[in-house]
Design a protein around this nucleic acid. Sequence first.
DNA 1: ATGGTGGTTCCAGCTACTGGAAGGTCAAGA
DNA 2: TCTTGACCTTCCAGTAGCTGGAACCACCAT
Lengths: 144, 144
Amino acid sequence: MNIGEVSKKAALPAKTIRYYEDIGLITPLRDPNGYRCFRDADMHKLAFLGRARTLGFTIEDCRALLALWNDQSRASADVRSIAKEHLAQVEKKISDLQEIRDTLSHLVRECVGDERPDCPILKSLEKFPGQKSPQKIAGATREA
Amino acid sequence: MNIGEVSKKAALPAKTIRYYEDIGLITPLRDPNGYRCFRDADMHKLAFLGRARTLGFTIEDCRALLALWNDQSRASADVRSIAKEHLAQVEKKISDLQEIRDTLSHLVRECVGDERPDCPILKSLEKFPGQKSPQKIAGATREA
DNA sequence: ATGGTGGTTCCAGCTACTGGAAGGTCAAGA
DNA sequence: TCTTGACCTTCCAGTAGCTGGAACCACCAT
């Protein structure tokens, strides 16, 4: 199977599949012409990866899960602990976002949104309460 | 005021403040020695930025909000529409994450997590249902 | 003079891809 | 046979929003 067909079947962009090879998640064979040649085992791995990624597991999680998947002697407890850890992160993220949502929707409700320059949203951004020490807001993490 | 003091007061890392200058969100003066010299207006902008970022507005949102903030003739409707748009995104993200959480917690509950290799989580990742066309899972977006 | 704590610049790296350029391969049609 | 077009290849750069680190300068106290 060439990459195009695999891309359709695994529901992943070809670019992503090449990237997964780059970072060593899969290692498809090559045809004499240089084209990647995917066998069923590769397809299964890709499908697995797609699903795990859809559930928000990081690439490194996926790498670990794949290794466990391939390891016939794994303990299911190892898998479970990765999943539990991830679940905890998802729950944290949800509650953070819910707080943000509440604040935002409160602001939006307060603002009549007319043509006048008076704006409670901006006003509240000026003096919105509570912050501690220098926060790290960052985090180019993917979620969902 | 030097950057250290501002960092404490605005509750933002110095690195972040320099970055905000880089991308043109603020333009502090310079002392003869080359040190950045922040006045109250800069402080207020930084505080504003910190709050907007805490609420998950993107940098470009912040740029727009700052411009509106500085524009005495702005219409509050413009601000409101940015906030509403952002609110919608936050709500979408929450519901995506809730779906993920439900699936994950279901999986974790199903898995006894013992020493045996049999693992319902891995099994379900093999054959987890429903995907359409090649998905873009991506998105280095920050959220709160 | 020295040490410590600030400040400065610049470059690289993080996640997980994505877009695009420049070019090779293959099958079908004129 | 030539050409067209779809498909494949590699490689480089860019995304968001910082963060870490190196190498260096400025200031103040001893």
